[in-house]
Every structure is written in structure tokens, then in C-alpha cells.
Write a protein that binds this DNA or RNA. Structure first.
Length: 602
RNA sequence: GCCGACGUAGCUCAGUGGUAGAGCAGCCGAUUCGUAAUCGGCAGGUCGAGGGUUCAAAUCCCCCCGUCGGCUCCA
């Protein structure tokens, strides 16, 4: 295996434009991170010569490599790997690329089952080989010229990872590292990580007294009064939209006979995600989704084309079994409710409905001060129901609606559900993990299974199409994302406590209670901090609880019929008349603003 | 579920075979103060559950529960 490839510096075209697929990585960084993975494998093989090595790609903030090792890695091993990597980098060994015939490569990697499997999966006749020092790897991707050219790195963790992500295949040990071009950028990244931990919704949920989870109910959060306030405000907000956008809210059962789940197909396809209860005479399933119940409701009445689109909204509580290892604060839970709705409409109404959903989504993301989500459009999979004409129609209806709304989106072939194409919206959490929030899914299947019909203009009976849609998605998950994006400093309309009255001395408590009563009359959520603490301590505590406005009252204020206003983040705003404060807060609440500025754009 | 780490007071954490600790929070008392922590006292733990080793276990071993990170960003 010899034949030299062209020198690295002359652009080797990268497989599938690999570096563009990963967020925030230019080609140099891609090469550096990829090279670092090779250097790490070199180090691990020095320690464990018998190790089997699998794959080691560059990733968003660094790189990883998967190994099959004789024993679990310890933190000491990581230090050892780190040291050996730095030695290799100091030695500045050149990366030498070549190609070899598959047969030669198979002979070379005879003791490396994972490499052999990779070779089998490569369509070309020749495979890439990359060597530096004594380490040789199967590799078709570009590197830096030599080990000394990589950036600043730090090994982060060891984790289990199934070979090829398949839980039926062996579990390997994955070492994660981060790498940036310079020491400063690495330090900044590590600093940002620490900052991110401070705004982790699980931490803030406890600190701000919003929610907690207890081992007594894994994956099922308890919402404390303050968290419940926010949760209900989110629901109120959606109800407000429903009035304007023509939705009808409904209430449907929690537990259904398995007959329903058999008819809907959930029993066959989703059973492992459901909870079942044995009644005295039959088996019942706790609902993981509202859609079958809504279909029963739709079918309970006769429908005319004049009623369509018919929009049923439901905040019903859903239960889904999630594997214990996947539970995560509010973002992956077993018990939750959604701002769920199902729209029954004609095929030609799909486009208009989607455009309306985008408008609702924009209002919502703006009101909650979230940024722009990432959109994806998932197209027909191989295994599907419905005719090609129907799919053509449905896919272009979704695509056209997005284009008409000026939305940038990514089309993903083959990722749609078997029952229809869908649009998903994703937001990052504070650690850069992406979660699905909103979803708009077409469904040709359930109307079929439940034999849903409407009377058309010509008197014939037609089948409606169904749109599953949620804008906040799981309210639990939404709240988790909301907490992290706001760092707990919610816009005023959402803050569980909107103002705290701070009497300077005991003799000012009565006045504060009077002001608080006046504020409550206008619908504000107000507390009076009447503890025997100093004003400074009360301010500090209110700041830590991220209360938007602190109203301080002492002798001077009482005399003037005023309060001294302090805004969260804005400092001391000086004395204001009580009625002026009410006016300011009313405007801010109505505009969904915050003390730090107006509502964000979505 | 699987791999690894972790689980000590309400919270954050110290304690690695020999009498369970600190800070904050809580309670009581004093202080009545002008924009991010007033002072003093008191109380608070079957050391996640169960089993084992040992004269002796928070500490070592086994098992269970839970939490945290990870489990295709595909040579």
C-alpha cells in the first residue's frame, strides 16, 4: 500500500463536503479535530496494543474515537492518553496519506474487525490509508500536515457507545475530546461550559423554586407554585391564540381500552412506549397521544365540508415510557402535556393551514423571547401508505407554505412518518443539544383507520386529512428550553413574581401591603418582603430570584406616595408614583416585554 | 435498556476502616437600616435501600433504586 496521494495542502475534496455538515467548523478545524482523533488512537494503542479501534470523527466542538478495550478506562488512563498525545504532538510526526487495494487493506487490518467491516462498506476499489509515526488508520478524510499542527485540546470524558449506534452490537468505549484553534478559544469554550451549567434548567428549576423531580416518580416532574404559574401562563397564551385562530378546546379520556390502540395502530407500533393497566375484565392503555381520542370524537358526529378545517385542541396529560437512561430534567420525561391539536381538513386546505401554523409559531416564539428555531421538512419514507400523487401534493403543500412564509428549512429525504410528511422545529438547550419543540405532521393513516368522513359539496362522503400539530410541543420540554434561554430571567408577563415590595424598616410594611394590594387589583403577581432583614439582603434575594421589579419603600417614599423602583438588570430607577409604576408594568406585560428590553423577534 | 461516574442535613459540599462536619437555607432572639448577604443562638442526618466482610463500615464487596454524561455529528 504505497501510492502517495496528492499533498494535503492542495485541496483534497472532502467526502460529502464533510466539514460543512458540522456546525461552526471550517476546513482547517475539521482537519485538526480529525487529526487529533488519530493521535488519540495512537496513544490508546500504545497503552493497549491489543485494542480494537473503530471510528474517530471530528464533531461539533472536538472529536472522539471509539475503542474496544480489555477493561474500562479510568480517569488515570485519560491522563495517560493525554500525556502521550502531547508527546506525539511535540514530536510533530507527518501524516502520510496513501491508497491501497481493499485486499491489501484487509490483510493489514486482519486483527481489526471494525476496520474490516468498514472496508466492506466502502464502495470504491481502493481505500484511503493514513499513517503517522507507528499508527496506521483506514481513513479517507483530510488531516493537517503533521501532529504538531493540531489545535488546543482537552480530553473530556469516557462514554459507552454502541458500534454503529446499534444497541444489538458491541458496546465500545468512546473518549471525547474538545479542540479549538488556540488555547484562548479552548479556555473560552470551557468557560462557556461552566456558564452553561449555571443556566441548566434542572439547576435553575431548583434555585427559582419552579419544579423538582423525586425518585418516587422518575421522569415525572413536580411543579411548585411558581413553576405552575409559568406552566399555566403558557397554556393561557395558547388559549388566547386558539380564540383568534379558530380552535375548539376539548377534553378527552386518559385511559382507553386497548381496542382503541389496536385500531389506531399504536398497539402494534408503539406498545413499548405505553403504560397498560389491567381492569377487572379488560386491558386498558394510558394515552401516549391524543390523536386516537380525537378521531373517536370526530367520528361521533356527522361533519360537513362547511365545518372544515375542524381544529380540536387538547392539553391532556400524556404518558410515555422512556428508557431510564434517557430521562433528562424537563426535556425528556415520562409524563407531560402538549399544546396539542388535530386539524381535520381537505387536501386543498393543507397549505393554508401550514401557513397559519407558521404565523402562530412566530407569535409564540416572539412572546417567549426565543430565537429562531431550525426547521426541517421530512419527506416520504420507503415504507409508507397513500398514493404517490397524494404524497406529491402533501409534500409540495408543506414546502410551498414554508417558502411562502420566508422560512429557511432543510429537506430530509426518507425521514417522514409512514403516514405523512412533517415539519419539525428544533431549539438548542444550553449545552448545544437540540430538542424538537414544534411539529406539524400530515396524517393520511388515522382518518383511514377510523373511517373518518365529511359530506362534500356534491353530497358525496370524503375522507379528511389530519394534521397533528403542537407549537410549544411538550409543555415540560418547552419550559426547560425557556428556562435555559432566559436563564430564569423571564419576561415580565411570565415571571412568577412580577414585583417584590421591599419595606426598609418594619414601620414601612403597612404602606407596602397597601401598595401591593393596589398592584394586585390590576392583576399583577406581587409579594411583600416583610422579613426582619436589611433592605440590601431583600434586594439581593429578589435579584437572585430574578424578580423583574423591586419596589423599595421608606420614609421618603411614603411621604411622596411613591416607591423607589429597581429593575432586574437595570439597577435603581429612582422614585416613581405608584400609579406610574402600575402603568409601566401594564404596558410591559401587555407588550410581553421585559425590564431588559422589548419582546424578541422570532 | 446498555457503558461509565456519582448518591452524606432542605441546598452546595468536606469527611476513604475507629465518636458524622461546614457554609447557606430554617427556627428563636436582638437589630429598623435607602439599592446584591446585620449579629448571636438553636435545631436539623437510619451517610439512597437491602445484604455481606470486619472487633469496628459513610468509607471495602455484592445487589437494587435513583441521578449525571454518553449510546452514528457514520472510514
Amino acid at each position: 500500500m504505497v501510492a502517495e496521494l496528492p499533498p494535503i495542502a492542495t485541496e483534497i475534496e472532502m467526502n460529502q463536503d464533510a466539514s460543512n455538515q458540522i456546525k461552526g467548523m471550517n476546513e482547517l478545524l475539521y482537519r485538526q479535530r480529525h487529526s487529533a482523533a488519530h493521535i488519540m488512537a495512537e496513544a490508546v494503542l500504545e497503552i493497549f496494543p491489543e485494542a480494537k479501534y473503530a471510528i474517530g470523527p471530528p464533531i461539533e466542538n472536538g472529536f472522539y474515537y471509539d475503542f474496544d478495550l480489555p477493561r474500562p478506562l479510568t480517569p488515570d488512563d485519560l491522563n495517560d492518553v493525554d500525556k502521550r498525545m502531547r508527546a506525539s504532538i511535540r514530536a510533530d510526526k507527518p501524516f502520510v496519506k496513501s491508497e491501497s487495494a481493499k485486499a491489501e487493506a484487509r490483510a493489514f487490518f486482519a486483527e481489526q474487525p471494525y476496520k474490516l467491516e468498514l472496508i466492506d462498506g466502502i464502495p470504491d476499489e481502493k481505500v484511503g490509508i493514513c499513517k503517522h509515526g507507528n499508527f496506521t488508520d483506514l481513513c479517507g478524510y483530510p488531516h493537517v500536515e503533521s501532529t504538531g499542527k493540531v489545535g488546543a485540546f482537552k480530553l473530556m470524558s469516557v462514554a459507552g457507545a454502541y458500534w454503529r449506534g446499534d444497541e444489538h452490537r458491541p458496546m465500545l468505549q468512546r473518549i471525547y475530546g474538545v479542540m479549538f484553534p488556540t488555547d484562548d478559544e479552548l479556555a473560552e469554550y470551557l468557560h462557556n461550559l461552566e456558564e452553561a451549567e449555571r443556566r441548566d434548567h434542572r439547576r435553575l428549576g431548583k434555585e427559582l423554586e419552579l419544579f423538582f423531580v423525586d425518585p418516587i416518580a422518575p421522569g415525572s416532574p413536580f411543579f411548585l407554585p411558581k413553576g405552575t404559574t409559568i406552566y399555566n401562563l403558557a397554556i393561557d397564551f395558547m388559549r388566547g391564540l386558539y380564540k383568534r385562530y379558530g380552535y375548539q378546546e376539548v377534553i378527552t379520556p386518559q385511559i382507553f381500552s386497548v381496542d382503541l390502540w389496536k385500531r389506531s395502530g399504536h398497539y402494534d407500533n408503539y406498545r413499548e412506549g405505553m403504560y397498560f393497566i389491567q381492569d377487572e375484565d379488560r386491558e386498558l392503555g394510558v394515552k401516549p397521544m391524543n390523536c386516537p381520542g380525537h378521531c373517536i370524537m370526530y367520528a361521533s358526529q356527522v361533519h360537513s365540508y362547511r365545518e372544515l378545517p375542524l381544529r380540536y385542541a387538547d392539553f391532556g396529560r400524556l404518558h410515555r415510557f422512556e428508557r431510564s437512561g434517557t430521562l433528562h430534567g424537563l426535556t425528556r420525561v415520562r409524563s407531560f402535556s402538549q399544546d396539542d391539536a388535530h386539524i381535520y381538513c381537505r387536501l386543498d386546505q393543507i397549505g393554508g393551514e401550514i401557513q397559519t401554523l407558521v404565523a402562530m409559531m412566530r407569535e409564540t416564539y416572539s412572546a417567549f423571547h426565543l430565537g429562531q428555531p431550525r426547521f426541517s421538512l421530512s419527506l416520504r419514507p420507503d415504507k409508507r401508505i397513500g398514493s404517490d400523487e397524494t404524497w406529491d401534493m402533501a409534500e409540495s403543500a408543506l414546502r410551498d407554505a414554508l417558502v411562502a412564509s420566508g422560512i429557511a428549512f432543510e429537506e430530509i429525504a426518507n425521514e417522514g412518518a409512514f403516514y405523512g410528511p412533517k415539519i419539525d422545529l428544533f431549539m438548542d438547550d444550553v449545552l448545544g443539544r437540540e430538542w424538537q419543540i414544534s411539529t406539524f405532521q400530515l396524517d393520511f393513516n388515522l382518518p383511514e383507520r377510523f373511517d373518518l368522513e365529511y359530506a362534500a359539496e356534491d353530497g358525496s362522503l370524503q375522507r379528511p386529512v389530519m394534521i397533528h400539530r403542537a407549537i410549544l410541543g411538550s409543555l415540560e420540554r418547552f419550559m426547560g428550553i425557556l428556562i435555559e434561554h432566559s436563564a430564569g430571567a423571564f419576561p415580565t408577563w411570565l415571571a412568577p413574581v412580577q414585583t417584590t415590595l421591599i419595606p426598609i424598616a418594619d414601620r414601612h410594611v403597612e404602606y407596602c401591603e397597601g401598595v401591593a394590594a393596589r398592584l394586585r387589583e390590576t392583576g399583577l403577581r406581587v409579594e411583600v418582603d416583610a422579613r426582619g432583614e436589611r433592605m440590601q439582603a431583600k434586594i439581593r434575594d429578589a435579584q437572585l430570584m430574578k424578580v423583574p421589579y423591586m419596589l423599595v419603600a421608606g420614609d421618603r417614599d411614603i411621604e411622596a406616595g411613591a416607591v423607589s423602583v429597581r429593575a432586574r438588570g437595570g439597577g435603581d430607577l429612582g422614585p416613581m408614583a405608584v400609579e406610574a409604576v402600575i402603568e409601566r408594568l401594564a404596558v410591559e406585560v401587555a407588550s410581553k416585554g421585559s425590564p431588559e428590553g422589548a419582546a424578541g423577534e422570532a
